[in-house]
Structure formats: structure tokens, C-alpha cells
Amino acid sequence: MRSLVPVLIAATALVATPAVAKEKLAPEAQLAKLLEGRTAGEPQDCITLSSVSDSQVIDKTAIVYRIGGTLWVNRPTTGAESLNDDVVLVTKLPTGRLCSIDTVELHDRTSHFYRGFVGLGKFVPYRRAASD
């Protein structure tokens, strides 16, 4: 009977400890958190694709491109409802510049099948405020 006591105490501790699930933020809240501490600049028509070090899709909302310390937010004019974590962005540009008149194909992350496209809007730069 003595050997069961530690097991019962451990089992009770596991049941009594609430599981903490990471809550997923709404898309606008996720974007706001990403841009926290940054200030919007003047919207631009184009960015240089070869300078982009990272991109992130915000579900049904935006595509965020990172160039150096600047985050460039693009809210597509068409097709934004198709943006989610399960798509891969496929960009075909002969000029090397990504502009607000361009489209970006969406392909399924797993099957690689075509899932649609988004028509890009203007690119809004968000930079960290200069520290004093």
C-alpha cells in the first residue's frame, strides 16, 4: 500500500493542474501584435523582392514582408479571404520588384496544388521608433 501513495499524489497533481492552451489571436490582433512599437510610413507601390528576408501570412488579412528592420504590410485588394497558414506564396516576377499591380499565386502547402491568388495593394512600411 505504501508504494501507491506517491503514485496517487502524482496523479492528483496532474489532474489538478489546468492545461494552458496557447490561445490563437484574431488576425487583426495578430497583425497589431506584430507591429507593436512600430510606426507606419508612407505607402509605396513596390518593394525589391530580392531584399525580402522573410514573409508571413496573416489569415484572411495581410502579407507581411521583412526587409532589414522594416516590416512591409500588404493588404491584398482581392483574394485576401484565401490567405491562411496552409498556403505557400508563389511569386513570378521578371523585374525583381513586387508591386501593387501584381498578383501572387497561392498553392497548398501539402499537395502544392493551385489554390487561387491575391491581388496586391500598396506596401506600408512599419519601422521601430527611433530611441532617444
Rank of each mutant, 00 (worst) to 15 (best):
residue 63 I to M: 08
residue 90 V to G: 07
residue 84 N to H: 12
residue 75 R to S: 10
residue 48 T to W: 07
residue 30 Q to F: 07
residue 8 L to Q: 10
residue 63 I to P: 02
residue 109 R to P: 00
residue 109 R to I: 13
residue 69 G to Q: 11
residue 10 A to D: 06
residue 27 P to Y: 07
residue 76 P to V: 09
residue 121 G to W: 00
residue 42 E to I: 07
residue 103 T to P: 01
residue 121 G to F: 01
residue 115 R to Q: 15
residue 43 P to S: 06
residue 54 D to R: 13
residue 98 L to K: 00
residue 52 V to F: 04
residue 80 A to L: 04
residue 6 P to E: 09
residue 33 K to H: 10
residue 100 S to P: 01
residue 28 E to H: 11
residue 61 T to Y: 04
residue 114 Y to F: 15
residue 17 T to V: 14
residue 7 V to N: 07
residue 5 V to T: 10
residue 20 V to G: 03
residue 74 N to H: 06
residue 36 E to W: 05
residue 41 G to R: 05
residue 70 T to V: 15
residue 45 D to S: 15
residue 47 I to Q: 00
residue 122 K to G: 06
residue 42 E to Q: 08
residue 42 E to F: 02
residue 87 V to Y: 05
residue 63 I to K: 02
residue 30 Q to N: 13
residue 103 T to Q: 10
residue 3 S to G: 04
residue 24 K to R: 13
residue 19 A to P: 00
residue 107 H to E: 14
residue 92 K to G: 08
residue 102 D to K: 01
residue 108 D to H: 13
residue 92 K to N: 14
residue 23 E to I: 12
residue 92 K to R: 13
residue 104 V to D: 03
residue 68 G to Q: 09
residue 25 L to H: 04
residue 35 L to S: 08
residue 62 A to G: 08
residue 55 S to A: 14
residue 47 I to W: 01
residue 74 N to T: 11
residue 8 L to Y: 10
residue 12 T to D: 06
residue 105 E to F: 01
residue 30 Q to G: 10
residue 39 T to K: 12
residue 128 R to H: 12
residue 27 P to M: 09
residue 13 A to F: 07
residue 132 D to N: 12
residue 101 I to Y: 07
residue 3 S to P: 00
residue 119 G to D: 07
residue 63 I to S: 02
residue 108 D to A: 10
residue 130 A to F: 05
residue 45 D to R: 11
residue 14 L to T: 10
residue 51 S to N: 14
residue 73 V to L: 05
residue 12 T to N: 08
residue 47 I to V: 15
residue 27 P to L: 08
residue 74 N to Y: 03
residue 81 E to K: 11
residue 104 V to R: 01
residue 44 Q to L: 12
residue 21 A to D: 07
residue 97 R to C: 03
residue 40 A to M: 05
residue 23 E to Y: 08
residue 116 G to S: 07
residue 11 A to T: 12
residue 55 S to Y: 13
residue 63 I to T: 11
residue 2 R to P: 02
residue 50 S to Q: 12
residue 83 L to W: 04
residue 14 L to I: 13
residue 44 Q to K: 15
residue 88 V to M: 12
residue 43 P to R: 01
residue 6 P to M: 12
residue 59 D to H: 09
residue 17 T to R: 03
residue 100 S to K: 09
residue 70 T to E: 09
residue 20 V to W: 08
residue 127 R to Q: 12
residue 61 T to W: 01
residue 106 L to P: 00
residue 82 S to V: 03
residue 33 K to G: 11
residue 132 D to I: 10
residue 126 Y to L: 00
residue 95 T to L: 07
residue 114 Y to N: 12
residue 15 V to G: 02
residue 73 V to H: 01
residue 78 T to H: 12
residue 101 I to V: 06
residue 36 E to G: 04
residue 13 A to P: 00
residue 110 T to N: 14
residue 24 K to H: 09
residue 129 A to S: 15
residue 58 I to S: 04
residue 32 A to P: 05
residue 105 E to A: 10
residue 32 A to I: 08
residue 104 V to N: 03
residue 120 L to D: 00
residue 118 V to Y: 03
residue 13 A to H: 01
residue 11 A to C: 14
residue 104 V to L: 04
residue 64 V to Q: 01
residue 26 A to V: 10
residue 40 A to K: 05
residue 99 C to Y: 03
residue 46 C to H: 05
residue 26 A to I: 09
residue 31 L to C: 05
residue 120 L to S: 02
